[in-house]
Design a protein around this nucleic acid. Structure first.
Length: 210
DNA sequence: ACATTAAGTGATT
DNA sequence: AATCACTTAATGT
């Protein structure tokens, strides 16, 4: 665990902080599809990604999902930040997008480090900022972009998060993430394929123009 | 060979 | 953009 920490976060954090992370954080591995945080749960840990990716979803009363954004190595969940500050329940669901390795940091520590380490403070502030930007993008996408653009954005985001232009996903799953029907997705994907943006296969899609 | 699941299509609202 | 109804294609048993 120290190796990975050193490798991916060494340039960000000072040595004492790295040691504290190692001491208080617990390493965890999850498989694709595992739920890390469920809506309504109290958040006790904040995740620090080592590898893999996680997708953040919102859900309405009827159980319909809507994707907000993906997080990767070097990211933390902004919702965790706002929720854990006041020991509130989670407003979102976090699902492992791929097999993922991460370090769970107790929220008390994260508050403590805020004042103790400048680099931590910067890290939190910066990723909070990035998340905010992505959230705004997500809102823009929903409010102003047409469905076809949204699907393409979704695919590109997903390809980025996976570090792979070949995405394993069914039309059904996309429809669920985007809160629409499968038929609509099928049609949009068809037209995107005709325009040369993607290549369709059964159970997978290849993104061509990244 | 049969059942199940994913994906494609036309018509309707 | 959503829904229905139906077809076709791929995959599993």
């Amino acid at each position: 665990m120290m190796d990975a920490l050193q490798q991916y976060y060494g340039y960000l954090f000072e040595d004492e902080l790295l040691e504290e992370i190692q001491q208080f954080g617990s390493f965890r591995e999850v498989k694709e599809g595992d739920i890390l945080i469920e809506i309504g749960e109290y958040i006790k840990y904040m995740p620090l990604l080592i590898s893999g990716a996680i997708k953040i979803l919102r859900e309405d009363k009827e159980g319909d999902e809507l994707i907000l954004y993906f997080i990767e190595r070097g990211d933390t969940c902004a919702m965790t930040l706002s929720c854990c500050m006041e020991q509130k329940k989670s407003e979102i669901r976090a699902v492992a997008e791929t097999d993922t390795q991460l370090i769970m940091i107790p929220v008390q520590k994260m508050a403590e480090w805020m004042s103790k380490y400048k680099s931590w403070q910067n890290f939190i502030l910066q990723s909070y900022n990035e998340r905010m930007t992505e959230l705004l993008e997500a809102i823009d996408a929903i409010a102003f972009l047409k469905m076809d653009k949204r699907v393409l954005k979704y695919l590109k985001d997903k390809a980025m998060a996976n570090h792979d232009d070949l995405i394993n996903v069914t039309h059904r799953e996309i429809a669920n993430d985007m809160h629409t029907s499968r038929v609509v997705i099928s049609r949009l994907l068809k037209s995107l394929e005709k325009e040369g943006h993607i290549k369709l296969h059964r159970n997978s899609i290849k993104v061509l123009d990244l």
